[in-house]
């Protein structure tokens, strides 16, 4: 792990019932980097994510966030990260605004109404929807609500699980812009996805995961997005 890495996997393996789910992963993610772990179904993406979130223990090796071993400092790590699950299912009977208030309270974070309004404006959630119950939100609106929550938590590290799954193209563009802005502001973003195009648009680095092993890596050079064709070929070939 370099001194600049915010997230790192060192010889990380997870075995469940004698089945190897993750096999000796090694990578580092630096501050302000958007890192995409790309893999098909059953590749081990969710297990990797859960291990970094402290929801699963590694069998061997170390998963570290902000220089702390996740397994040994789960609570501390969880205070430093924000997590956007796939299909963000916040509470349907609460409004977007109430959901944010609720989760901020759960996190023990106090924010003024103005701060919440600012975050909701930042993620471009229409103002007339703020106080509607979440059950009336589209997936994109729920996604924006969750990102507003992450912004309000000032978490330096964001873990995103299939963030663009189910979003329409316009919503994906909006989302990618938000992610880029957060990264530009210093947030480290770790996303797992099987969306090759989306990952290439937003990620600084894409790492391929197949059967629990890292099988390839692609890096953005300057402002040019990673070559979708190349990633797709590598991804399709190893899926």
């Amino acid at each position: 792990m370099t001194s600049k890495s915010v997230i790192s996997a060192s010889e990380l393996s997870v075995r469940i019932d004698q089945r190897t789910i993750l096999d000796n992963l090694n990578f580092e993610v630096g501050k302000g980097e958007v890192f995409a772990l790309l893999g098909g179904n059953g590749a081990g993406k969710s297990t990797t994510l859960k291990t970094f979130l402290g929801l699963m223990k590694p069998s061997t090796g170390t998963a570290s966030v902000m220089g702390m071993s996740v397994a040994e400092n789960t609570n501390e790590v969880q205070k430093s990260v924000a997590y956007l699950p796939e299909s963000v299912t916040l509470y349907g009977h609460l409004s977007g605004y109430e959901n944010i208030r609720y989760f901020l309270s759960v996190a023990g974070v106090e924010k003024t109404d103005d701060a919440i309004h600012e975050a909701l404006n930042k993620v471009a959630l229409q103002e007339n929807a703020w106080h509607n119950t979440l059950s009336n939100y589209s997936k994109g609106m729920r996604q924006k609500t969750a990102i507003a929550l992450a912004i309000l938590r000032n978490a330096p590290v964001l873990f995103l699980d299939e963030p663009t799954s189910g979003l329409d193209p316009a919503a994906i563009d909006e989302f990618n812009s938000l992610v880029s802005e957060l990264a530009n502001n210093g947030a480290t973003i770790f996303m797992v996805t099987h969306d090759v195009y989306g990952a290439c648009q937003v990620a600084h680095r894409i790492v391929l995961l197949s059967n629990g092993k890292l099988t390839g890596s692609f890096e953005r050079v300057g402002d040019t997005p990673i070559d979708t064709e190349a990633v797709h070929a590598a991804f399709a070939g190893r899926k």
């Binding site: 990260v81 924000a82 997590y83 299912t89 509470y91 989760f103 759960v106 023990g108 938590r153």
Partner: peptide, 18 residues
């Protein structure tokens, strides 16, 4: 089932308190 469990546990200052 709603896939909120992990979100709550990761977000919570103290998940037991929730």
């Amino acid at each position: 089932e709603a896939r909120r469990f992990d979100l709550l546990n990761v977000t919570a200052r103290n998940s037991h308190a929730v």
